[in-house]
Design a protein around this nucleic acid. Sequence first.
DNA 1: AATGAATGAGTCTTCATTCAT
DNA 2: GATGAATGAAGACTCATTCAT
Lengths: 191, 191, 191, 191
Amino acid sequence: MDKREKIIDAAISAFQEKGVEKTTITDIVKRAGIAQGTYYLYFPSKLSVMPGIAEVFVTKIMDQLREQVTSDSIDKQLDEVVESLFGTTDEHRELAILIYSGLTQTEHIKEWESIYSPLYKWLEQLLEQAIKAGTIRSSIQTTYTARIMVGAIESTAEQIYLYNNHEEATDSAHKQELLTFIRHALGASDS
Amino acid sequence: MDKREKIIDAAISAFQEKGVEKTTITDIVKRAGIAQGTYYLYFPSKLSVMPGIAEVFVTKIMDQLREQVTSDSIDKQLDEVVESLFGTTDEHRELAILIYSGLTQTEHIKEWESIYSPLYKWLEQLLEQAIKAGTIRSSIQTTYTARIMVGAIESTAEQIYLYNNHEEATDSAHKQELLTFIRHALGASDS
Amino acid sequence: MDKREKIIDAAISAFQEKGVEKTTITDIVKRAGIAQGTYYLYFPSKLSVMPGIAEVFVTKIMDQLREQVTSDSIDKQLDEVVESLFGTTDEHRELAILIYSGLTQTEHIKEWESIYSPLYKWLEQLLEQAIKAGTIRSSIQTTYTARIMVGAIESTAEQIYLYNNHEEATDSAHKQELLTFIRHALGASDS
Amino acid sequence: MDKREKIIDAAISAFQEKGVEKTTITDIVKRAGIAQGTYYLYFPSKLSVMPGIAEVFVTKIMDQLREQVTSDSIDKQLDEVVESLFGTTDEHRELAILIYSGLTQTEHIKEWESIYSPLYKWLEQLLEQAIKAGTIRSSIQTTYTARIMVGAIESTAEQIYLYNNHEEATDSAHKQELLTFIRHALGASDS
DNA sequence: AATGAATGAGTCTTCATTCAT
DNA sequence: GATGAATGAAGACTCATTCAT
């Protein structure tokens, strides 16, 4: 395992435990088991690990999606996409917060688009296939709609998992409403 | 103008210019034209101005909405809502980021929901009236859909104004796609 | 005694004892009896005290000169000037080195001229009086000759006191040669 | 070109550009095109290159003098000596400073005398010949006067080239005054 | 002889907070 | 209430030096 990876992992664990603001480079290097100066051979500052962390995060999202979205019908696929993204947000909520927090604190916010592009690309393809199959409306421009959908799903997941005190019943209703919202938006047949 | 307000305004301007992390109390008091110690008579720490800033932010959003959403038909109203929220995001994007950033850096993230509640409430009522008028589908649960819509609109606005390098043509297409998306989602008549 | 002066005195003592390079800000503040941060309220860096130190040095030179150069005849005055500057260099040799060293290490070297100007002015006046009295040649341009003389005397003093291992006999001969050199240069009557 | 020489040249260029204090071994090895560790095969520390640099410096001074001082009369020779040393100081002023600076930072300051000895010897011989020829006063002790002259000339050159902002007219007058000063000092015929 | 990644002790510098006025 | 000079703990960052290859 190379040092760059060690540092990213150590940073994730430190940021999650102590928060970005309160984490020091010293915390990170201790966890990574490397020397103080070695950190600066790989990253110029505390927050410059953020894009690295974000990549790890998106990799996790994509792994989950590829694993969990397996159906053929668009209807079930939407279900699985929402389920998967909700799951990732729930599971890695601290990671999600710290990425957002870290990105906003730096000049790196413009990198968000490129970090997310694998996710956007993947969803675009899924939409294109559905259009070809005639299961969603043909007027959809996949480039934009993919981004809109990801935004809608993730913001809803954040509302549920990050801001709220969960309640099984309302959470489920909220999620169902999102699914219905998206299905209508895509012009898919209501299930 | 009392000192508390002066401090909040100074904090907003400092945070926007230098970022939350790099802003110091000294920066704030200099802009506010008060003495170092005076700050602590009004706020116990740097991040404790955040709720004050957030209030200002939501007030601006609501003022814009009330002023700009004036039509009768749901179709035009949606147009105006998107237009208004896009405008606010564009104009106050740094403010939005710093609030989010500030909230994630503290224990205050759960307050996001309550900070946004005036906006949610306002949109719920708009939706309820449209349901009554029969211009959108009656199966909509306004509590959830209001939140989903705000999430979809703001995340799209962020994608356009925060992460991207603007291009007139694509920005406009992206926004149109969002409108179409929402209209279908609400079961409104396509314009 | 104000803090700025305390810092300069502490810096002189620290620089002399440990050398400029090996002295830390911590060394200085400890000797000055002030807090770490207080240093930065007065000076932005370690070497920026140097001009302050140089002023102290020139003040000492001037005090000595005024006290020791009391004769009326130019011949004796020259003797006393050389004696005085040699004495100052001998007594404060470490101070002299560290000023030169410190000035060369920074952007402050251009300030040397203005720091030395009291000395130059004083010697110009002495020369002007001698010209009026007809005891040195009238073709002398005092502005330049004052500078040349100071340079000649100090460089000789440095050669003797800083670079050499002293030997009473040669030191004295060296000094006499300098005096003869200057007397002839000024067109003064040889003693 | 062997590595030792490469290092000395790299050190000169780095010291001149960044100053001795701010130059790091890393700066030097990068310029020399060698590896970090290789430096230590040739020099034990940063300042131990200084004597090597000083050699280069005095070699340049002597080369200039031998090339430019070619006349027979003492009067013209003095002119050429001053011209030559002024030229070297102007051209290599940073080099001169960094040597002085480097020497004062270490225990090496006593070496200044021996570094300069070729220059002193050369000037002693020139003076001896002039005494023999009867063109300067016979009471001169060449050992001391050579040192005094070098000191006077170099300190004047420093005053002009290091400390001042040049002005063609005053610089030239300053130099002429120095020449007149020295001619009288040596008891040479005024030109 | 040459390399250059890794080290970690040591320093500079910042800045939230205090408190005498 | 208001001030702002002073504080000093804490953290970022540097860089001479080493050593396995």
